[in-house]
């Protein structure tokens, strides 16, 4: 098992705990972040039933997407320093990207789409090289378009591409750098919330970032 995989599987529960403890404590600033980090670190490496959290989280998935990690880092920093790294439209792009990718990937990967088509196989560029250009080119084009239009979520997608090139995950499938079930589920939920809000109150108001645009 690659050492980077262990770090990665520890990073996601650590960031999640950090974010939750920030929300619960309401602490802001460097001191609040440091305090939350100490708590999160202790919880992550505490031997729950004989093993630390990364052991248990890796049991279910060692392939948390780079995008989810990127979004968690943004959320943690935004909450700690009220920096407004992501504006509402950046978050909106993140949820739309996750929801669209989930709809494209999961039904076919689970054998529920067209019988012989598996979108997941396109994530191995050496397998169906010709067809894989749609995934790699599509993700690259989407990220480029976002960056071009000034949407900061594009940089997170860009980081996912660099992560794939570096190959630090257990998986060598490109999809696993872009998407994971947690990010996919949250994205779909956020899209549903956005649609619900639009139907009931008009303009879109993302909920979680709590920051104003610069």
């Amino acid at each position: 098992m690659k050492e980077t995989v262990i770090i990665w599987t520890a990073l996601v529960p650590f960031l999640l705990l950090l974010w939750f403890s920030q929300r619960i404590s309401g602490c802001h600033g460097l001191a609040g972040l440091a305090l939350a980090a100490v708590v999160a670190f202790a919880v992550v490496w505490f031997p729950w039933f004989g093993h630390p959290l990364p052991f248990w989280s890796a049991s279910m998935s060692a392939n948390f997407s780079v995008i989810m990690v990127g979004l968690l880092i943004v959320a943690v920093f935004d909450r700690a320093f009220e920096t407004g790294i992501f504006r509402p439209r950046d978050w909106r792009a993140a949820w739309i990207f996750g929801a669209v990718a989930s709809v494209l990937l999961y039904p076919s990967a689970l054998g529920l789409g067209p019988q012989n088509f598996d979108a997941y196989a396109l994530g191995w560029p050496w397998l169906f090289w010709g067809q894989s250009v749609w995934l790699f080119g599509g993700a690259g084009f989407a990220a480029a378009l976002l960056i071009w239009s000034g949407n900061r979520f594009g940089y997170v997608v860009f980081l996912a591409m660099l992560g794939y090139a570096a190959g630090f995950q257990e998986s060598d499938n490109f999809w696993d750098y872009l998407l994971d079930p947690v990010y996919g589920a949250v994205s779909l939920l956020m899209i549903l919330c956005m649609i619900w809000r639009r139907r009931t109150s008009g303009p879109l108001v993302p909920t979680s970032e709590g920051s104003s645009g610069r």
Binding site: P125, F136, G140, A144, I147, M161, Y164, A165
Partner: peptide, 12 residues
């Protein structure tokens, strides 16, 4: 944006 497009297509 151009660098991102290149980064996306490079592994492919």
């Amino acid at each position: 944006a151009a660098a991102t497009l290149v980064a996306g297509l490079a592994p492919w």
